[in-house]
Amino acid sequence: MTGARTAGLESHVRERLAKKPLLLMAHVVVGYPSLDANWAMLEAMDGAGVDLVELQLPFTEPIADGPSFVKANHDAIQAGTAWRAYFDLTARAATRFSFPILFMGYYNSVFRMGAERFCARLSEAGMSGFILADLPPEEAAELNAMARGRELDPILLMTPTNSPARLAEIGRQASGFVYCTARKGVTGRKTDLSQGVAAFLERCRTATSLPLGLGFGIKTAADVREVRGLANIAIVGTACLEVWEERGADGYRQFLKTLAAETV
């Protein structure tokens, strides 16, 4: 067990930020292409010095995801990835690696599990928090209160379409850090970070004092370099998976190292 969870996610992020200007968060769709491949991915993340990891529980209707992750979700489900396999992997990962691990997924999984059982399972697996792509804050009050009782942080999203009033509302309910989406749309497509992202992050800063993560379309080492000075955490999801598919395990390890090199 790492010290990360007991210290709280925000403290962990701030401690890391005292040592380096930018953190790196990476993503795995559990069960795709296989649980063994997922383990190799996690080892590569650990080796490269990735700071935070989100593990996605596959869902049949992933409405916030682009084509690569949609395919990964469906193929993982076809391969039979269920709750048990998911939590077995996360628990093993939390024991073996020092980075904090976040649950990522869709609300129906939580709804079917029950809020209390969901929080208990995350807690038992040694996870630090969760990101639910389709759960708006006004539906999350009970779950979030329960989670904080177990020292789990609900990670909320701020998006460029949100009004200042909405950003402020999200800011009031957020903890750990805030996941800011660099553009509209779904995961996967490249983002031009010169187009209004800085102004958007300024609006987020006004709404919260928590660390800010920036995701959606961060695909290259150059992108990560650009995130320096804009946000506190660069979040790379789809690009990791695409590199794994195109360049294999060695290419993946190399890719993560080049990303991480931009954060020190």
Binding site: A64, A133, D134, L135, P136, E139, L157, R166
Partner: peptide, 12 residues
């Protein structure tokens, strides 16, 4: 019922 959509669509 309700509205369970990504935050991106909240204002829409």
């Amino acid at each position: 019922g309700g509205a369970f959509v990504p935050e991106m669509l909240h204002e829409t």
